[in-house]
Computed example of a mutant assay.
Amino acid sequence: MPNWAQLLSEINSQGSVHDVVRRRYVKELSNLTGRNVIVYYSGWLEKQDLIRQGLTGFEVNDSDKNGFMAVIHGMDRSKGLDLILHTPGGDIAATESLVDYLRAMFKNDIRVIVPQLAMSAGTMIALSSDEIILGKHSSLGPIDPQINGAPAHAIKEEFDRATRDISINPASIPVWQPIIAKYSPTLIGECEKAIDWSNKMVKQWLETGMFRDHSDKESKADRVISELGDHALTQTHARHISFEKAAGLDLKVTRLESLGQDMQNAVLSVHHACGLTVSSTPAFKIIENQNDVGFISSANMMLTPAPFQAMPQQPGPDPQQP
């Protein structure tokens, strides 16, 4: 019979009700597919108030590597990996490092399942896999890199336009001067390097991943980069890329709905359980596997309360009235 301390330790190890329910559905998905499952789930949509207050860590960053190391340890890697990916994107260097690590662990036996959104660097991670599974509700995004929160392509386009306009009409210098002044002298060079880096990286992943058996893999990879990496074509970094658009680029994408109702239910159950966790608890990022091993980032800051506003006092009864 366990003592008090042992029972308390067992209860604490089970986590919250959200943890128990979420882990059950992650395990059910793994049992259904016979593959390893890792959830990488950011709560950036649910925690907008905290983002406005300055909380960071929602994005792909170098600290995520510790989480992946923890959840991959002890796995039977011969079963491959299904990565449930829901992220706004993040740092290019951290993305490159993470993809290199996942490939070293699972080779090319990686499927990325996008339950809702894998934007920016999240799309880059998806493109590094052997197959992407998208539902009717799922979206990828452009892969143009960001510099200080602004698309590198957009910065370079604006600078190039200013150069052209000024060379044609020097009188336009006063118009462009305050616009160009916001850019540091080295920023344009940084943008050009970031664009070249991300393009080469994704091209190499495509050629050694989902296009590796294609005779025209180089031209196919170039087309994907042109369509998803050119800001002039995607128009905005927030643009959503549907299954149809991804399939039109010859990417190896599979409809979630085509895998059967059981698979659809299993994936969406994990998605909803994660969404409820990040919306109802301090957790804002979940990295977790089917073996109940998790690396969960939680916010230790409070939302700023709204200023108190007194309700107008209603007039009471006239004391002289009966």
Rank of each mutant, 00 (worst) to 15 (best):
L81E: 02
L117A: 04
M201K: 12
R52V: 09
D130V: 02
V114Y: 01
P315T: 05
I195H: 02
N3H: 12
K217N: 13
D100S: 15
G209I: 01
R77C: 10
V26C: 04
Y183F: 15
A181D: 15
S219F: 07
E257N: 08
A104R: 14
V224H: 01
Q48W: 06
Q14D: 09
R35T: 05
S138H: 03
C191E: 05
L83S: 07
T234C: 07
T95A: 08
S13K: 14
P145I: 03
I143C: 06
A247T: 03
I113D: 01
D130I: 01
K65T: 06
S215D: 14
E96I: 14
I195T: 04
Q320N: 14
L102F: 04
D49G: 12
Q6V: 08
R255Q: 14
Q116E: 13
I166W: 04
I155H: 03
I11F: 11
F68H: 04
D250W: 07
Q309F: 10
R23L: 07
L29N: 00
W176D: 04
P185H: 10
V17R: 11
V112A: 00
D213I: 04
A94L: 09
V267R: 00
W44L: 02
E46Y: 09
A93K: 14
C274D: 07
L259N: 05
G149F: 09
I225K: 03
I147W: 06
S258W: 08
S269N: 15
S78R: 12
P145Q: 03
G89T: 01
S184N: 11
T95L: 02
A310H: 09
Y183P: 03
S242F: 04
A181E: 14
N36A: 06
K79V: 03
Q14C: 09
R23D: 11
D62Y: 11
S139N: 13
R22K: 12
I168W: 09
F106I: 04
T304S: 13
T304A: 12
R111A: 10
T234I: 10
V224D: 02
T208G: 10
A306W: 05
L55Y: 05
A306M: 11
S120Q: 07
T208K: 10
G149C: 12
H240P: 04
A154N: 06
V21Y: 09
Q235K: 15
K27D: 10
R239C: 02
W176V: 07
T208V: 04
R111C: 06
A310Q: 10
D196Q: 14
E10A: 15
Q6W: 07
S97M: 11
S219A: 12
Q204V: 08
A94D: 11
D292T: 08
Q321C: 07
Q177M: 13
I179H: 10
L85G: 03
A266E: 01
S139V: 11
L259Q: 13
G15A: 09
A246Y: 01
G135Q: 02
S139P: 00
V99W: 02
L7P: 00
K285H: 10
E96D: 14
A70R: 13
S9F: 10
W176C: 03
F243N: 00
L256T: 02
W205E: 02
F308P: 06
S120A: 14
N169T: 10
C274S: 09
I133P: 00
H272Y: 13
G316A: 11
Q290A: 11
Q116T: 06
A181H: 11
V202N: 05
T123K: 01
A104F: 12
V99D: 02
S129Y: 02
E190T: 11
M311T: 13
N291E: 14
E190I: 08
C191Y: 02
